[in-house]
């Protein structure tokens, strides 16, 4: 179920809304920040805490692409595959990432270090191709700088 800190944080988020249920997405993200993803117990915990049916909450969770309902690695890589990055050959970037990490998009490396995900436009089209690792944006990617960047994430 939910930890006390999670509950406290969810309560703080819920204070912004006139209706408790509105904090659903905040709550899912709060849980995810602490656990990496949103397991079924957390769906049960949040739904009880926000007094909404689990089905409805999971319907919400499964709508959004940044709520992970499956375990992810320690670091999540979002490689932009939208149009401006595509024009700057992001498909090659993704292939290269896939090669380096030894996983297809959507998968997690065997050592649990990285999960590789394609992403919609990250809003940094002037510095394409780009990717995000966890909360960091990495821009102007070419073949050379990738390895160095990855090294920074244990």
């Amino acid at each position: 179920m939910l930890s006390d800190e999670e509950k406290e944080e969810i309560n703080a988020a819920a204070a912004a809304y006139p209706v408790r249920q509105a904090a659903a997405i905040d709550a899912l993200r709060i849980v995810q920040r602490r656990r990496g993803w949103v397991p079924d117990e957390a769906i049960a915990g949040v739904s009880e805490f926000l007094k909404m049916p689990a089905a409805e909450l999971d319907g919400v969770a499964s709508f959004y692409n940044l709520i992970f309902r499956r375990p992810v690695g320690r670091h999540v890589i979002l490689v932009c595959d939208s149009v401006s990055c595509w024009l700057m050959k992001s498909d090659r970037l993704l292939e290269r990432m896939s090669g380096i990490l030894g996983v297809e998009t959507g998968q997690t490396t065997a050592d649990g270090r990285f999960t590789l995900l394609p992403s919609v436009c990250l809003g940094a089209c002037d510095r394409a191709p780009v990717m995000m690792i966890d909360e960091d944006l990495h821009t102007d990617l070419d073949g050379e700088n990738i390895d160095k960047i990855l090294e920074r994430y244990e």
């Binding site: 912004a16 209706v19 904090a23 997405i25 709508f63 959004y64 709520i67």
Partner: peptide, 29 residues
């Protein structure tokens, strides 16, 4: 006036203004 920052769960549809209203309400956008 109360001003709050709502961080999205991530979907292009959230940008559509009525989808956004649903998203802020914690629903499917």
């Amino acid at each position: 006036l109360e001003l709050n920052l709502h961080i999205s769960g991530g979907r292009y549809m959230c940008g559509e203004e009525t989808g956004m209203l649903n998203a802020i309400e914690g629903r499917r956008a």
